[in-house]
Nucleic acid binder design. Structure first.
Lengths: 205, 205
DNA sequence: TTCAAATATTAAACAATGTTCAATATATAA
DNA sequence: TTATATATTGAACATTGTTTAATATTTGAA
């Protein structure tokens, strides 16, 4: 039956329109700007309509959240052809911080936000995050097997490194770096990355 | 004039009562439970009354936030008589993570929360935070002067170390560690702390 | 084409939030 | 005792997300 197919297609198109609009609002003015009513007004529907396509606001936010992880993973994949795991890890650290600083709203949603979308971590919906985490973990694993990272296990090292970059990013994004003048933050991040690189990883090989 | 003194005293007492009640609600059920209306009900006043004593909700939250920093600093001070800066730094890392894990709500407010209290970072109200940061920075400085931390400057090393512990804490608190089973988190944190300690700091002395 | 049934959409309402403000109650000083 | 100053209130406002009964539209068969 063709009508049913069309119906389903239209339903999907409407879902896409809602998500697209939500992303638009998100990019324009951050997550605070993404309200059911704002989305509804922009697509010229009533607020209630949206609930025919999404269970709740969390589901919409989750779509934006997923898009963020797509962006990050695409960046990670750009490191695919770097053979040296040490170099790869170094570049991944820089890339991660660059992504965080240039996409603060996305980063916030992906790794910091709470009340905004409790849904995010509920189900097994962590796949996209898992994928990025594995990419890091695999590289760390290569470093260990290569003898560049020593005296630790894969998971401890991976969590330490992730924690390190996430810590810097989230302190900056959530405005907890009042102790240093705005201008020197970027420089300090650079110095910290170098400090970590110099000491955690050896180029002995 | 005695009445004026009493008036002022009563005003202060009322402020204290409001803060005390807010903290009570906070400890009972987290920051979500701290609403102007809930505080008002608990002290048997109308919601509007609270605005005779505080400009807005942010000022009340800020008081709780400050209490958190008092708690943390008290813990740091307990390390005062450790002479060896390396040992001191190691213990400070453990202590910081312990504080974060045992006072998740406080930690959230102090280092992660956003919308809840924009006021927090507005003014020069960062003093209590600065104090704790300086305590860490001074210890790192001692390590550098002692030759235990090398090839870096004080600020890069301090930010790196703070970022590292904050990163782990905030990832856990905001539920971004779905990739590892609940039970192994504590163990991984331990391993990560050890990993960092082993490599960033040398006991050469 | 027509019309009952299914589906989509809406407007209004609900509950909860922080905040404001005119009206009221209370306390103070003369 | 009374006028003034202060404290407190209750209702209202604006803003959320969400639900739901009522309406509008579309569909498929007669």
């Amino acid at each position: 039956m063709s009508t049913e197919d069309r119906k389903e297609r239209e339903k999907l198109e409407m879902r896409q329109l809602i998500i697209k609009t939500a992303m638009q609002l998100f990019k324009e003015d951050g997550i605070e700007n993404v309200s059911i009513r704002a989305i509804a007004e922009k697509i010229e529907y009533s607020p209630g309509s949206i609930y025919s396509y999404f269970k709740d606001k969390g589901e919409i936010i989750h779509a934006i959240h997923t898009e963020g992880f797509e962006k990050l993973y695409a960046l990670q994949k750009s490191l695919d052809d770097i053979k040296d795991p040490v170099e790869k890890l170094r570049r991944m650290g820089e890339l991660y911080m660059k992504f965080a600083m240039e996409n603060k709203d996305y980063y916030d949603l992906m790794f910091i936000a709470k009340g905004v979308a409790d849904k995010i971590c509920e189900k097994q919906e962590w796949d996209v995050g898992q994928r990025s985490y594995n990419y890091l973990r695999d590289t760390v694993k290569d470093c260990i097997e290569n003898g560049n990272i020593i005296n630790t296990d894969v998971d401890s090292a991976t969590f330490a490194i992730w924690g390190f970059v996430h810590g810097m990013a989230s302190l900056i994004i959530r405005g907890r770096c009042a102790m240093m003048p705005e201008e020197v933050i970027a420089q300090t991040v650079k110095g910290s990355l170098q400090f970590i690189n110099t000491h955690l990883i050896s180029n002995s090989n």
